[in-house]
Computed example of a mutant assay.
Amino acid sequence: MEMKEIFVETKKVISEYKAKVEVFDNQEDSLKAELVKLQEEMTANLLDQEGAGLSDRIYLKAQAKEINNKTDIINTMLEELEEARTALKLAYVRVYQDAMRQDGRVTGEYNATEIADKYRYLMLTEIAEIGKAMQSQYREVSWDIDEVLRDSAVLKEYPRLIETFDSERYRPSFGWMFKSVVSKDEVFSATRGMLPQGLKQPKGVK
């Protein structure tokens, strides 16, 4: 069975949302790369201070302060970026809801009750047709067979033979160890895409 695409509008919203998230991701990557550079500069600065003279140390400390200031600014920008991500998610909650509500209408086109009703009807009518044909053929010969098998002399000689010719013997075989052919729970599982444990594909069924 060919299924319609359900989440048409939802996928549009996801694509739109991801495009905005990508902008945030690029900004975050750039800021973190800048942080790494500043950390490397700070490491080099501290090493240079160890053997530097007074005037050089003054310059290096001023440089270190500038590096710290830049680091603080970037950390603040990263926090603001995280807040912007959260705001975007909150803004898209209603957009997702509207899209999913619209897409959800498609599921109404697939009615498991109608499918179960259809195949229950087809199964029972097919079995009944076979059973009816067998009983019809049984009745065609039963009177002639009974004339012999129910004769008193035959019954006396073969008392149990009459039991071998009974209408109950002439019907489609049916061996089923469960109470029902398909249970409601199994149908509910199927609506979630799961098949009953132990279900086997019959021969000749594709």
Rank of each mutant, 00 (worst) to 15 (best):
E2V: 12
K4Q: 12
K4S: 08
I6C: 02
T10A: 08
V13F: 02
I14Q: 07
S15T: 12
V21F: 11
D25N: 09
Q27Y: 03
D29S: 13
L31A: 06
K37F: 11
L38Y: 01
E40P: 12
D48Y: 05
E50G: 00
S55D: 12
D56M: 05
Y59A: 14
K61L: 13
A62N: 15
E66V: 02
E66D: 12
K70W: 09
T71L: 03
D72S: 12
I74S: 06
N75Q: 15
E80N: 15
L90Q: 13
L90E: 14
L90W: 09
V93S: 10
V93D: 14
Q97V: 12
M100W: 03
M100V: 09
M100G: 00
T107N: 06
T113K: 07
T113V: 11
E114G: 09
E114P: 05
I115C: 09
K118S: 06
Y119I: 04
L124T: 05
E126M: 07
I127Y: 06
G131S: 05
A133L: 10
M134D: 01
S136Q: 13
Y138R: 00
R139H: 13
E140Y: 01
E140G: 11
S142V: 10
W143T: 03
L149F: 08
R150N: 12
K156L: 08
P159V: 10
E163H: 08
E163S: 13
F165P: 10
S173Y: 11
G175I: 14
W176T: 00
S180H: 04
V187I: 11
F188P: 00
T191P: 05
T191R: 05
G193K: 09
G198H: 04
K200W: 05
